[in-house]
Structures are given as C-alpha cells and as structure tokens.
C-alpha cells in the first residue's frame, strides 16, 4: 500500500507542470524515503531528476518500493481539477494497476477523486557522476526565467559565461545580438530573493539550447531560488531546491563547436 497526503497539494501540480514539457511518461519510484523520478526527454538532450522526501508530506506510507508508471499529460489534466488550496492524497495498492488522486477543499466541503491507469514503462536510471563544478551561480528563479524568455527572441543558443565580472548570457541570431550580465550582489543590501551569488573556481563558457532552459524555467513557481552549476564540457545542472520538500534538477548537454 502506498499513501501520501499533502496539505500544500499545489506543489504536486507545480511539479508536474515543470516536467510535462520534457517528459511524456515516467516512473515515479516510491519507497519509504519518498518519491523519485528520473527521466530523459525523447531526444536524450536533457534529464529531469525529481526528489520528494517522505518527511515533506503530511502523511506518507509506502509498504513496498515500486515504480508507478504514469503518463504526465494525463496526470496534468487530472491535476487541473485540483484547486490551489486543496489537500491532495495519492494512493496505490501494491499490486494494483491504477493510482488514485483525491482532492479535498480546505474546508472539507468538496471532495473529488480520480483514478488513472498505470503504465509499464522501461525503467531508465542513469549514473550521474558527482561533479566538482567550476562555477555555481545562485539567483532568483523568476529572474532566470525572465532572462531565458527575453533572450529567446533573438536566437536559439545562449552562451553562458561565468567570469570575474559576473555571469553573462549572450545570444546572437539573424536579427542581432543580445547580452545580459548578472553580477554578484552579496556584498550589498539586496533582499534575499534577489541575491546573486557567484562561486567560481575558474572561468567557464558554454553554449546551451534556450528551448530546454525555457522548459526548465517552468519550475520557478516551486521556489524562489535556482542554482546553475557549470564545468567545461559537462552537462549544465539547473537545480531548484524546494524547501522542506525536495528538489527538481535538470541536466542539459552542452552544444559543442563543430
């Protein structure tokens, strides 16, 4: 038996919105410690890794570890019926072929339940080596979304370079070029959410497809902060930590000069 109840049910909805552009179907691996998901997009350019800790739920019971194969677009449709303040309960039997979603309004005056059929999905687990990233930038998640959306009007590829002057995002396309530089402001009085922290061992300059970064940025409603971790010739890690709940990480293969 698996049962998980979350008062802030909206979090589940936001997690699925942040995954469904990249992943159509995936296994939610449930165990006594929580829920994990790891999946690459269909072109194997990016990888999403979700962790939701058992302690992050108001009630969490998992008698047997198992994968729950779910079509994320169906799950997203079901979650559209979940209101902002609803309490969400997920349930699945050990040998069942479905997952049950229950949405309860805060005042307990409306209860909805939905059942989704589970799917058999080949498990994909990738060994992601521990990487000692040469540069880590932590900034406002909404500001990162803004940068990705704004620069994508000019081109498809962004060059991210971290140097002593800050982190520069550059795009060039047929229309022209654009640069946005964000500087470390930890020594000023900037409020917590707008802080930019740059931790650099050595300068890094890498190219990435903006299309994927824009999809990753759909995770911004989950949390205030995002970290970008870079090293030469290795995938970029874009990490959204969700306080007291877990994290959503995205890995993106760089574009390499031909």
């Amino acid at each position: 038996m698996f049962e998980a109840r979350l008062t802030k049910g909206e979090l589940i909805k936001k997690v699925i919105e942040a995954l469904k552009d990249l992943v159509t179907e995936a296994n939610f691996d449930i165990s006594a410690t929580g829920i994990q998901l790891q999946a690459m997009d269909s072109s194997h350019v990016s990888l999403c890794a979700l962790q939701m800790k058992a302690e992050g739920f108001d009630h969490f019971r998992c008698d047997r570890s198992m994968p729950l194969g779910i079509n994320l677009s169906s799950m997203s449709k079901v979650l559209k019926c979940c209101n902002k303040d609803d309490i969400v309960t997920l349930k699945a039997e050990d040998d069942g072929d479905s997952i049950n979603f229950m949405f309860e309004s805060k005042d307990q005056d409306k209860i909805s339940d939905f059942e989704l059929k589970l799917m058999d999905i080949d498990s994909e687990h990738f060994g992601i080596p521990d990487t000692d990233y040469k540069a880590t930038v932590t900034m406002s998640a909404s500001e990162f979304t803004r940068i990705c959306n704004d620069l994508s009007i000019l081109g498809e590829t962004v060059a991210i370079s971290v140097g002593k002057d800050g982190v520069r995002f550059s795009v060039s396309g047929e229309m022209g070029t654009g640069n946005m530089t964000v500087r470390d402001n930890t020594s000023s009085d900037t409020k917590e959410a707008d802080r930019v922290e740059i931790d650099m061992e050595e300068p890094v300059n890498l190219n990435f497809a903006l299309r994927y970064l824009k999809s990753f940025a759909k995770a911004a409603p989950l949390t205030d902060r995002v970290s970008l971790c870079l090293s030469r010739d290795v995938p970029l890690l874009v990490k959204y930590e969700i306080p007291e709940f877990g994290s959503l990480s995205y890995y993106l293969a760089p574009k390499i000069d031909d």
Partner: peptide
C-alpha cells in the same frame, strides 16, 4: 554553429 550533444555521451544507464 555549435552542435547539440546528447546526454548519452555523459551518463551511462545503470
């Protein structure tokens, strides 16, 4: 123009 790498070069399936 830079060419898109895929992740399989970096991460093996385990």
């Amino acid at each position: 123009t830079p060419v898109q790498n895929d992740l399989d070069e970096f991460y093996a399936m385990v």
